[in-house]
């Protein structure tokens, strides 16, 4: 866990998160999201979660953001005002910001800011077996539920992407 690398990836992630939220152009936002994902993957590697880092890249960067770009291109860009400053949103934002600051403050005040960084826990990292044992023993039910969820999601997408008269097949 190199501090320099942590700072680098943290800064990259935060900057690109700001980019996602602040960018007017949807494609720019998507690319910022991609960059942020690379940053988070770097942080995962810092946390010894190599497998998750690559899975994150595979699932999010390899599929999710591409899907976003695909939809952006399919629907065409929209040149309207990007922000929605309704009173409700502003109030909500302010409240949320205050809560966040309060949380940060409490972390800074009460948090143990400098616990000894523990060495690598056994089984964390690139080794697959611990993950597999966990997934198929303790978390067997959630795995099944996830499978079911994916099936339902697939069916849902197929139904949704049919046109109303049912002439067009699912993409």
């Amino acid at each position: 866990m190199s501090p320099a690398l942590f700072t680098l990836f943290a800064a990259l992630t935060l900057a690109s998160a700001v980019g996602v939220v602040a960018n007017k152009n949807v494609v720019n936002a998507a690319m910022c999201f991609l960059l942020g994902l690379v940053g988070v993957a770097g942080l995962f590697v810092q946390l010894d979660a190599y497998l998750l880092a690559f899975l994150l890249l595979l699932v999010y960067a390899g599929a999710v953001v591409v899907l976003f770009l695909f939809i952006v291109m399919l629907l065409g860009p929209q040149g309207r005002a990007a922000w929605r400053l309704t009173p409700g949103a502003v109030v909500g934002g302010l409240v949320a910001g205050a809560l966040l600051l309060a949380g940060w403050g409490s972390l800074l005040v009460h948090g143990r800011l400098d616990p000894p960084p523990p060495d690598g826990a056994p089984g964390v990292g690139a080794a697959l077996k611990p993950y597999a044992y966990q997934l198929f023993t303790t978390y067997l039910l959630p795995v099944q539920v996830m499978g079911f969820l994916l099936l339902v999601a697939m069916l849902g997408v197929i139904v949704l992407s049919r046109k109303a008269d049912g002439t067009e097949k699912a993409p």
Binding site: L57, A61, G62
Partner: peptide
């Protein structure tokens, strides 16, 4: 010497679409 060989290959090469 990545232990995650094939996963890494898929993860990185899937970025080629961009």
């Amino acid at each position: 010497p990545l232990d995650l060989g094939i996963l890494a290959v898929f993860a990185v090469s899937s970025l080629g679409v961009y």
